[in-house]
Write a protein that binds this DNA or RNA. Structure first.
Lengths: 156, 156
DNA sequence: TTACCAGTTGAGAATCTTTGCAACTGACGT
DNA sequence: ACGTCAGTTGCAAAGATTCTCAACTGGTAA
């Protein structure tokens, strides 16, 4: 898998660095209260490699503290998404699934046949986005870029 | 509002041209059956300027044919979204709202304070997307780019 | 360490969206 | 025109997500 200067596969870095960002500190700095349910949910998200949906997160959470409610899971997912700490994916009508943002922003390429997600990042695209927003009179707070594709068929 | 070569505001074109794309023909060509409910829903979408949610579309639809069901509205919205004929927007937890794609693909800048949507298109960004997908071994089927921003504050 | 209070939670109701299935209907060939 | 059948539909039920509100609890300041 080759890397060029305009983008790189963040998934690679993720495993290479293998260190959890300190979300607690970050969130606190942003004025978010760190409660017991939130700490547990964040722990679950930072220590998994898959893309669980709300119900799955809920089940893992009540194993640690069975007083946590599903509402809180949903509320926390929305909060973390707004804070940019996690990303949400939705495949053909199914429930939303989440993954941590690994501290760094990145975009997604979704395989429409398998649902597999490849993470990548392009500074060039981000720069163009800034340009566009500026000329429309806006400052970008965050963005979402999802490419939906299918594996290239080589001469069959 | 100035236009440059890298992007243009599609919303402007929309009003300037003011002509409905012939979705029926397009969809038929793509192998989609044009049923009575679908025709009605498409008519509603192509003749409105706002961004109605499923319930609103449903109510407008049953005024024309009261046998149409809400499920069909939802199913049709999903179908049209997959076909690229409409776009879906979701603001802070509320129900999804839809708008026709005006035949041409375009991206969105969403004002996080007001929910206002500005449509734009950048060929440069699309080209970069193609490049990235190709080097990851994929062909892009469609994509979604949403910028979330806030009006730039000028020297106050 | 304590009291305070705005922000958060749990529980369940409400809302939004998808699904299963039997009945129905476009599109196509005759 | 007519029959056929895969694709659609309406309905009801299930599933997913948000909301309401009284009770609770982090963070802050005395």
């Amino acid at each position: 898998m080759q890397l060029t200067s305009i983008w790189r596969i963040v998934g690679v870095m993720k495993h290479a660095l293998n260190q959890k960002p300190n979300y607690e500190k970050e969130l606190r700095k942003a004025g978010v209260r760190i409660t017991r349910p939130r700490r547990i949910i964040i722990d679950i998200l930072t220590s998994t490699e898959d893309h669980p949906d709300a119900m799955k997160i809920f089940h893992r959470a009540i194993e640690i503290d069975d007083s946590i409610s599903l509402s809180t899971v949903y509320r926390t997912m929305n909060l973390l998404e707004e804070m940019g700490a996690i990303h949400r994916h939705a495949f053909n009508g199914g429930p939303s699934r989440f993954e941590q943002a690994h501290g760094e922003h990145h975009d997604h390429l979704i395989d429409i046949d398998t649902g597999a997600v490849v993470e990548f990042k392009s500074d060039k695209i981000e720069k163009l986005q800034e340009e566009i927003a500026k000329s429309l009179g806006y400052d970008i707070v965050h963005h979402r870029l999802e490419l939906y594709g299918r594996k290239t068929r080589h001469s069959s």
